[in-house]
């Protein structure tokens, strides 16, 4: 009698367990549909032609909906960035580690404090006290390597994944 009962219990438990597994499998697509769709993922890299940029000039492009600052740096800017002692930096990082080619700085144009777009790309913009960028929202100053020097931002401007497809073409993402 108890053997029958445990067999019955097993079949009942097995049935309802399959139901639970099936429900879980069915719920997954509902959750997964919120993940980035195929067309969103397809826009995940951008190619930029930087051939027209002169030394000292800057270019802003949009990547994944956010601005990316590309600056072709002058000798002075490179030198000044490298002579800074790392101990004095809030987010210590050597300039050499932030660029693939010395002249070309590629950083996300998003302040690491609360997300505003810093000024410094356009010709008339103030570049802040360190020759890089200045964020008007709460007064963060970044240097010519995109590192935070003064103000409330906790980290340096983020370096996005990028590569040089050729001397004139940058692929971001």
């Amino acid at each position: 009698m108890s053997k029958e009962k445990s067999r019955r219990d097993f079949i009942v438990i097995a049935s309802y367990s399959m139901g639970a597994v099936g429900t879980g499998a069915a719920v997954w697509p509902i959750i997964d549909q919120m993940n980035p769709a195929a067309d969103t993922l397809a826009m995940s890299s951008t190619e930029v032609n930087i051939g027209a940029l002169e030394i000292g000039q800057a270019l802003t492009v949009k990547w994944r909906g956010k601005p990316v600052f590309i600056r072709r740096r002058t000798e002075t800017e490179i030198y000044d960035s490298r002579k800074v002692s790392l101990d004095s930096l809030r987010d210590p990082q050597a300039d050499e580690d932030r660029v693939q080619k010395d002249e070309w700085l590629v950083v996300m144009g998003v302040c690491t404090h609360l997300g505003c777009v810093p000024l410094g790309q356009k010709v008339g913009d103030g570049k802040g006290d360190y020759g890089g960028w200045f964020c008007p929202c709460h007064g963060s100053h970044y240097d010519a390597s995109g590192r935070i020097r003064k103000g409330p931002a906790p980290q340096n401007l983020e370096i996005p994944p990028y590569s040089f497809i050729s001397d004139n073409v940058l692929k971001i993402g």
């Binding site: 019955r8 399959m18 099936g22």
Partner: peptide, 20 residues
């Protein structure tokens, strides 16, 4: 396939419970 197995199992379970 999953649902057919589940149907067979639950039918057996139903028979067992109702046999009672």
């Amino acid at each position: 396939a999953f649902l057919l197995i589940m149907a067979v199992l639950s039918f057996m379970a139903k028979q067992q419970i109702w046999a009672n």
